[in-house]
Amino acid sequence: MLRFLVRRSLGALVILLIISMVTFALFFAIPADPARLSCGKVCTPENLALIRHSMQLDQPVPLQFWHWFSGIFTGRDFGGAGYCNAPCFGYSYVKQEMITNTLIDRFPTTLSLTVGSAVIFLIFGIGTGMLAANKQGKPADKIASSASLIASSLQIYVAGPLALWALVYSTNWLQLPAYVPITQDPIGWFTGLLVPWLVLSLIWTANYTRMTRSSMVEQLSEDYVRTARAKGMSGRSVFLRYAWRGAMGTIVTVFGIDLGVLLGGAIITENTFGLQGLGQLSIDSIRQSDLSMMVGVTMVAATLIVVSNIVVDAAYALIDPRIRLA
């Protein structure tokens, strides 16, 4: 297992290096000149050259990449903007901020949103899915299946405003979404995120219900489940000890990947509820042509997905003894 983790981590570093090169190349492929953008209204060619020089845009691209890349490990000096400590993802001339600081500032929002809704959709999704599988073909199953079909076809930009209207504006039952750090005010953190959690997890619950149901149904028709019944195991232990054990592999795999994607920024949800997380940050930086910020956000999102993939593979090996990691 240790061998596997070390090997996969080294592989992950290679992947991330490639991703960083590609995103960095895109930086130059986009028809926007960061120097021109920072130049202001009255932009003389001298000014432009000066800015270009201060942004190091006059250097060869490989050298620029090297500065950026080594900065992640060693930190980097941005002259007037100050010194950027490692891990340094560069300086945003648009925001006039160190990118690392912005990322650190925004990440807790996304993390809170993801973890909170993941807890909800895992509990309800898996629970409903197992119930439906247990009552296969009966009314409970049919209700759960059709409800989840409807819910999973909802879109956040529909469900979000609807929920805001129903739960906040017209009834005042819940608070308007806002992010307060949990360290400052746990109750405010909870109430501020409750509506986004509910909306985001509604759709994901539906997906997990469907997935859990179908993999449980599949497992229940396996030969070894029949064997367990033939040995006199009770319906309950057949369901939990055998079928659920088999279904877990699929669910953990999908969840790991979903988690990585969500942590990279639930773009539409954050945008709908005005939460300043990584998703919102990526939209803003695209809108403002903040190229160095885009590269930074992409790198963080890519890292989260790569890491969660490794975790999924390791978890899968723990669940299924047939998978040997090497």
């Binding site: 029949r226 064997t227 367990a228 009770s234």
Partner: peptide, 24 residues
């Protein structure tokens, strides 16, 4: 029946690879 299965009457299946749980 649960009390009888595996105790008084039991079954040997055709394909032991699929009939035994891979997880236990």
């Amino acid at each position: 029946l649960e009390k009888l299965r595996g105790h008084t009457m039991s079954m040997i299946f055709q394909d032991p690879l699929t009939a035994l749980s891979p997880f236990h």
